[in-house]
Write a protein that binds this DNA or RNA. Structure first.
Lengths: 156, 156
DNA sequence: GCAAACCCTGTAGTCGCTACAAGGTCAAGT
DNA sequence: ACTTGACCTTGTAGCGACTACAGGGTTTGC
């Protein structure tokens, strides 16, 4: 199976597959005489595992860890538990901060009732006033980059 | 006011302030004879506005737009409404997909009840089986990077 | 014999910062 | 006068997880 076929079967882009190989997540496949990558069922499984873990929001570093655990099955599985627990608490925090954010945005939306010009726009006024009132109310918008100018929220 | 003082007053890092200036979000301040940036109250306000919008999860591009609207207050505020609405629906989608994700992770956590070795670990087994079962169940984990190997979720 | 569809490597871009390196400036203390 | 240390400057490279080329080679079918 060539890389394009693997991409089709997994729904993963060709360039992403090569990227995973470069990053050491996907084992290097055999090569044809002309240097084309040739994949087998085992690597299809590997890639699906990676994609599934990604869809659960795990980082590539986490997945690398999990793969190492898979390889040495005599180890204690406490580390796996811990990894999943961390993931859960990370996601939970994200949900909470996003819900708060949603409320604030909805409140903001309420400030504007079909006015005509920006000068009368309640949203913009509210934004400006809020930024004047409090220098910094941080609540980590996306989880993605916890907006590091406030030390109470640390990067994970 | 020098850059360090502005940083202290806003809680924003010095390097981030310079970055905002480079990106054209913050207007270039006056300079002292030796080239030091000198800020006034107006720019303090500008920066607080930016930080407040960032804390609402807006992108720098969005904030640039908002600032342009602020500058020309004769424009219709429909664009501002639209921007906020987009932000709301983005955040809402993120909340939904993260809640789903949280459920899946909690279910996964339940698969492992204090076993001793990785070989018996229900989590790992479940992950492997799930990745074998369905080639791709995508639900855009963080909102952050909607995991582009599935076309049903598009990038905003 | 040629075009289209595939494959290869390598590099640079995305976003919103963060972290240096290598130097200049300034105020206080000795 | 000299030094120390805290500040400031520019410029560049790094993060994570890709994405998007450029510039080439190969394979397949007509």
């Amino acid at each position: 199976m060539l890389i394009g076929e693997l991409a089709r079967q997994t729904g993963c882009e060709v360039e992403t597959i090569r990227y995973y190989e470069r990053e050491g997540l996907l084992s290097a496949p055999q090569r044809s005489a002309s240097g084309y990558r040739r994949y087998n069922a085992e690597q299809l499984g590997e890639l699906n595992f990676i994609l599934h873990c990604r869809s659960l929001g795990m980082s590539l570093a986490d997945i690398r860890q999990l793969a190492a655990f898979k390889a040495d099955s005599s180890l204690a599985c406490d580390d796996i538990n811990q990894l999943i627990d961390q993931q859960i608490s990370k996601v939970h925090q994200q949900v909470e901060s996003l819900r708060l954010l949603e409320q604030q945005l909805l409140a903001l939306r309420d400030r504007c009732h079909d006015h005509h010009t920006v000068a009368e726009c309640g949203i913009l006024q509210t934004l400006v006033e809020a930024s004047e009132g409090e220098p910094c109310v941080c609540h980590t918008p996306f989880g993605q980059d916890p907006h590091p100018h406030h030390p109470s929220v640390e990067k994970q």
